[in-house]
Amino acid sequence: MGSPEEDTLRSSDSAQSPSSASATTVNPNGFDEKDLVRSQQQQQLKQQRQHPLAAIPKRKPVAGAGGSGAPVVTSTAVAHDASLEEAGIAHAAATSKMTSRWSQWSSGGFNLGSRSGLGKYSRKIESKLPFAHDRRKRRFFLIGVGAGIVILIALIIGLAVGLIVGKKGTASNLPLPTNHGGPYTGDLTYYNPALGSCGITSTDSDNICAVSHLVFDVASRGSDPNQNPLCGMKLRLRRDGRSVDVTVVDRCVGCKATDIDVSPGVFAKLANIDQGRVLVQWAWLEDAPVAIPA
């Protein structure tokens, strides 16, 4: 027990101790409350200064069945990857097949494939070709054969065209027959043919002629001139060592009995077209139904 003054001082100290303890709270780590508030404010400032998207929480991987935290691969994703792999394999196979076929053709091969049924025949033919073991020489050989065939076809076509043009476009030098009537001598003139009395339409380049109306009318056997037996008959014209065979298709009103009127193309083969009228010899190439005085 002390004096009354000491007891009063002791009681005042015990009354102040709870307020002082509550005013200052010590953090277990050694920091007071003010330091904690200050650190929290600094953290908030740092977060505000970061990129706006940085605050978005990242997606966490879905935990597996075992709870290991590894991402789960679904069956849809596996099927999609498998289909992509199969498509890639199919594309590679198709590309390889096309490349092999192109290499066969470019190297001069004739492999038509076993499925077509022609593969064995192509191999037999290929084995019998010259240079069977040298594709380069064989290719040049086949190119040469093809070029030769093309040249031969061109020569045949040219020869045929030449024969046709030569027969139609130039004069010959053939004698006049004497066993069908003739030879006769008369004037040779030309006209522009169209639809003739025989019902045949002709052009200026055709080897045709019109005989005198005196001959045409005598041979007529009815009122239809198309049925005249002279229509379609052939005769040969000859002048200065040149001859042309023509077909009767018309009737010449202004011609004498032995005169012949022809197309401009026929006249140009026997004389100068500017002459207009020249003498000519002619004879029938087949038996005539009428007799013409020489």
Rank of each mutant, 00 (worst) to 15 (best):
L188E: 01
V290G: 03
I149A: 14
V290F: 10
G186N: 07
A79V: 04
S22Y: 03
D224Y: 08
G232Q: 06
A63E: 06
A92W: 04
G64H: 05
E33H: 00
P57H: 00
R115W: 08
N192S: 12
P293G: 12
Y121G: 08
I156N: 14
G117I: 01
Q40N: 03
V211G: 07
V78N: 02
S103E: 09
K269M: 15
L195C: 05
I292K: 02
S39P: 01
R139S: 14
L36K: 01
I292A: 03
V72G: 05
V278F: 06
W105L: 15
L84D: 11
I208M: 15
P61G: 08
I208G: 06
V249M: 10
R242V: 05
S12H: 08
A210E: 00
A23N: 03
G182K: 09
S100F: 03
V248H: 13
S197F: 02
P289Y: 01
L270Y: 03
V62F: 08
S202F: 02
G67S: 01
F216I: 01
L118Y: 13
G254A: 12
A294R: 10
K58W: 05
D32V: 00
A93E: 10
G182S: 14
V246R: 15
K46H: 08
A92F: 09
G182H: 13
S11M: 07
D81V: 11
R238Q: 11
S20M: 06
V145A: 14
G88N: 07
P4R: 14
D259Q: 03
V150R: 06
Y121S: 11
K168V: 04
A268P: 00
